[in-house]
Design a protein around this nucleic acid. Structure first.
Lengths: 212, 212
DNA sequence: CACAAAGTGACAGTGACTGTCACGTTCGAC
DNA sequence: GTCGAACGTGACAGTCACTGTCACTTTGTG
């Protein structure tokens, strides 16, 4: 629906967008997100403030805009799951995808500074939480729809899909925090696996001997 | 630390604050959050825009400011738990408190419109997510500290407390969504219990027969 | 080449929020 | 009771994210 072959216009647009984002991210990391104005960014890129807003709707989008594409990919991954697969299994494959792109090989230092920026800037952190929530809402909608299509419709107030999705995303976010606390060293997948293990541990008697 | 006996100055301050909040919430529900300016509110209350900002740091705080007190109560509840109690049990008592105040008897219609306002206004929803996250962060910090004080310190990158807390809060939020989807009918505690049951169900084979 | 669509700069405007200052009120010491 | 300090407020000016508009240029297309 939106996937045509590039086309020169679209390609320049993407290039400009990428340049703005690159410049902006650098300034944000150097001076801080709030201390950097859109005019600063526009000046460095060499365009008017108005034009920057033609590429990004908000200041936060400059940093987090990439997650719109991620959301689309997540949904694609989800609808590629075999019919009849249970929700948790589908969900985990979606999360595995998210985990994969959260630690692209060879870019760990870039990811680290970006992650730090987002987690340490309240405005960005709030926007990030909103993005994660949007992903969850979209996934939940698909799970409801899938249940309906497979002849086992769920009541509108059935909390199960929401809870499952929220728990998985909660573990994902917790893993990102732990990874950051660790200095973004080592593969994220390992940290995430430990987080998911907490979810899988039988409830009611927490305290499974932790790795030490 | 902040709990002294009222004192006239403090009492008037709280009264004014409550009046601003009451007026603002009415206007927000009537005209929408974004369509209502601080000047509108100031005009109705009969004060200057500047003065409104002396009571509330941001527009969102007018609606969500109450959660600062909730956070304090949550932490009080948590530190009142018996030493040695396992994290999940303590956590559940904290959540029970949150559930309780989320459905105060006799105010369900007020809660319903407030909940709808928050969930349907992106700006407010993001701010609400941020508040919930702040609560989680504070609770996680206490759990880490408690573990240290009890002689079983956790590694800084141990994801367990974060995951447990995130899962519980995820279930809470999911329950609020389900409650809203249901039209805010019936006790919230019931909806919440169903949500928590999903967490407690053994993993790996989701699909426990749902209520029908 | 012509023409419509798309991109841009310049300008003005809104609204959330902040700093500052002068003025009036109030609280506590005496 | 009174007086000075602390506090609350209105008025005003300023910043910054964001939006609408318009005239102008650039560019893809037939």
């Amino acid at each position: 629906m939106a996937e045509k072959e590039p086309g020169l216009r679209e390609r320049t647009r993407r290039a400009v967008k990428a340049e703005i984002a690159a410049v902006a991210k650098r300034l944000f990391v150097e001076r801080g997100f709030e201390a950097t104005t859109i005019d600063d960014i526009a000046a460095v890129v060499g365009m008017s403030q108005r034009s920057v807003f033609r590429y990004f709707a908000t200041k936060e989008e400059i940093v987090l805009g990439g997650y719109d594409a991620v959301l689309a990919d997540l949904l694609a991954e989800l609808s590629a799951r075999p019919a009849g697969e249970d929700d948790l299994a589908s969900l985990r494959s979606v999360l595995a995808f998210l985990v994969k792109i959260s630690d692209p090989p060879g870019h760990r230092d870039v990811i680290a500074s970006a992650l730090r920026l987002v987690f340490e800037t309240p405005l960005l952190y709030a926007a990030y939480l909103e993005k994660l929530q949007k992903m969850q809402d979209a996934i939940v909608a698909v799970l409801f729809e899938r249940a309906r299509a497979e002849g086992r419709p769920r009541a509108v107030d059935d909390p199960e899909p929401r809870v499952l999705v929220a728990a998985e995303f909660g573990a994902f976010l917790a893993a990102q925090h732990s990874w950051l606390a660790l200095g973004v060293k080592g593969p994220f997948a390992g940290v995430h696996a430990r987080a998911v293990a907490v979810l899988d541990a039988p409830r009611g008697q927490a305290e499974v001997a932790g790795p030490k």
